[in-house]
Write a protein that binds this DNA or RNA. Structure first.
Lengths: 159, 159
DNA sequence: CCCGTTGCGTTAGTCCAACTAACGATGTAC
DNA sequence: GTACATCGTTAGTTGGACTAACGCAACGGG
């Protein structure tokens, strides 16, 4: 096969993924998700954040304070992992963890002014990153895309 | 907040994911991919296969035999992980590993008759699984979806 | 009022995929 | 012949999703 390369056959140099493989929605999804995750993770890292930070802060802003368990359900983060995320957020003074006087099992998590500011920044960063992610699509196509994804996801989570 | 539940407030019982979060394409992608991966992995497990098996077999069928490194490039599997995949395939007699007489660093991997039969089966299984995955979409929408994914992925891998 | 159940926050640890590093053996280029 | 690249392989890292179990507190029924 080095012969092939020497002979200038592009077959091995720029190796083709089989079409039947490339066309599979499942493969396209995971490949694209990998790229997307990388993009987002790296983009957020530049402002000292991770995706989970955004999820928690956005949830706090939108639906108000809540216990860790509530946040966990709202954001889809496992409550085992929530501990660490909240530690990171608290370290940065973006949220406050206070015991619930009504139920001593709970902590009530509240977003701070600093957290709100940070969230605004993250929103901007994410907007830009999504612009990059969806760059090849027209605005209409982006909507289409999001809508298709949403329908598929709904179908598979509702049940 | 247990009060809320007791009072029948649905807010906490069926906790809302913030819209700004839910609408992000990146999040939709990773969530859906998670579902998709699960579906595919479980489906393939029922015929004693894994995704990588399919990738390698399909590549062999479509572009012929090759060294492990070649297969690695074609299928996107790291050559470190290729070893294990090929071991599994060889165990099942789906593929044959023979030293390359022209280059003693290499193994030449060839698909067996059994491998071809198995591949046909996997193709069928995957067709069914994708039918399930894309169930909520019309045929036209499925094409649209695949096309959008392809364009996005191309954009992010070409560069 | 006790008792079993449930929910809470937390710690630890499992599983798997993606990825890196380094190895000895071999081949290629100068 | 020497320097460099490639091949298959082993080992190990990282990170995300997920489970198990803990002590604590609250709740609900007898």
């Amino acid at each position: 096969m080095t012969r092939a390369e020497a002979a200038g056959l592009p077959d091995d140099v720029a190796p083709k993924t089989p079409d039947r493989l490339r066309r599979r929605a499942s493969r396209l999804l995971s490949q694209l998700t990998m790229q997307s995750d990388r993009l987002i993770t790296e983009g957020l890292a530049q402002v000292d954040a991770r995706k989970w930070h955004y999820a928690v802060l956005a949830s706090l802003q939108e639906h108000g304070s809540g216990s860790q368990a509530t946040l966990s359900r709202r954001s889809g983060i496992y409550r085992s992992d929530m501990v660490g995320v909240l530690n990171e957020l608290a370290e940065r003074d973006l949220v406050e963890r206070a015991p619930d006087p009504d139920d001593r099992r709970r902590n009530i998590i509240t977003i701070s002014a600093r957290g709100r500011r940070h969230l605004r920044r993250l929103d901007k960063v994410l907007d830009d990153l999504h612009d990059e992610l969806l760059a090849p699509l027209s605005p209409a196509e982006r909507d289409q895309f999001v809508q298709l994804l949403t329908r598929l996801l709904d179908h598979h989570t509702r049940t």
